[in-house]
């Protein structure tokens, strides 16, 4: 469905001088530096996948999205999406995709949301029947009934983002690009947005490509992640594998009836201990969690056990460090 082969792209940037003399010099002469943004990026995505596209700021995420959505023409490389070349067949191609830029709005600020939707219907030439069906579906799923008639400027960020997502799905796109869809949202809105993305992926088979800095988005949505840093592709695979490769440690917190003797379980590290609670770190490659709990229950009178994986965020931080990005 989506196939990128050896995409490269670099930008030319004028250097800004500081200081009066430098500034005066810059009046006549300016230096340029060439900054590579993407370096030989290749991957392919199957229909119906949800892919998390991650990387630190300036890694080349938005550049890739721009190439895939036909905004930018790369310096070299090939890209075929649904049989189209995004930049050569722009007008034909973009009918099939929806794009949400989390930091910008595609809605008209001062008019009711529904007016924006109507205009988008005309822009995408959506047949009336199809538009009505879609609208009904989207309004229901995203709970837009009450806000459809208020101007966008009066909406909260969460409400607005729900409208933005609806707006990019009115024309039934096969692929949805989401650039930081949850940025700035509160917990409730985040969950609502995620659930909806999952839903349209499952029910309509929409392929979703998602960039975000919020790893919980990725955990909740994406089975597959693509990691990019300094314009290079660093990892492409299942989130689970990433976790098992880098996140084999788990933390077990146990509460028990008062016990005044510290205990030790083989192959684990005791992180903290008190008469009623202990926190233990376990490497699951060395010993199974279930075994640890069995041993625990023989030593103390257990009340409650909580097992936490190492947060994905930490794994990513470690990854960034490892790749020095």
């Amino acid at each position: 469905m989506i196939k990128l082969e050896g995409i490269s792209k670099s930008y030319k940037i004028a250097r800004r001088a500081s200081g009066l003399r430098q500034a005066a010099k810059a009046l006549f002469y300016r230096e340029h530096t060439i900054i590579p943004a993407l370096n030989d990026i290749s991957f392919s995505i199957e229909p119906g996948e949800i892919v998390g596209y991650i990387g630190p700021n300036g890694a080349g995420k938005s550049t890739t999205i721009k190439v895939m959505s036909g905004i930018l023409v790369p310096d070299s490389g090939n890209c075929t999406i649904m049989g189209f070349n995004p930049w050569r067949d722009r007008v034909q191609y973009v009918k099939n995709i929806g794009v949400v830029f989390g930091q910008r709005s595609q809605l008209w600020w001062d008019v009711p949301v529904i007016d924006s939707f109507l205009l988008l219907r005309d822009i995408y030439k959506v047949p009336q029947k199809e538009y009505e069906n879609n609208l009904e579906l989207l309004v229901g799923a995203l709970e837009l009934q009450d806000i459809l008639n208020s101007p966008v400027r009066q909406l909260s960020l969460g409400q607005r983002m729900r409208c933005e997502i609806a707006a990019s799905l009115l024309h039934n796109p096969k692929i949805l690009f989401l650039d930081e869809p949850t940025i700035g949202l509160d917990a409730v809105s985040k969950i609502a947005v995620r659930q909806f993305i999952k839903k349209i992926n499952q029910e309509r088979g929409v392929t979703v490509i998602l960039t975000t800095h919020d790893m919980s988005d990725i955990e909740a949505l994406a089975e597959r992640v693509i990691l990019i840093g300094k314009g290079k592709l660093l990892y492409d695979g299942k989130l689970k594998e990433l976790r098992s490769r880098f996140g084999t440690e788990k933390t077990i917190t146990v509460d028990y009836h008062e016990n005044n003797y510290p205990f030790q379980i083989p192959d684990t590290t005791l992180l903290s201990w008190s008469p009623v609670r202990a926190v233990i770190s376990v490497d699951t490659e060395v010993v199974l969690t279930s075994k640890v709990i069995t041993q625990l229950s023989s030593k103390v009178d257990l009340i409650d056990v909580a097992i936490e994986s190492r947060p994905i965020e930490e794994i990513i931080v470690q990854l960034y460090k490892e790749y020095q990005i």
Partner: peptide
């Protein structure tokens, strides 16, 4: 101000 202005040659 001058510095700022010169940026915009």
């Amino acid at each position: 101000r001058l510095l700022n202005g010169m940026q915009y040659r």
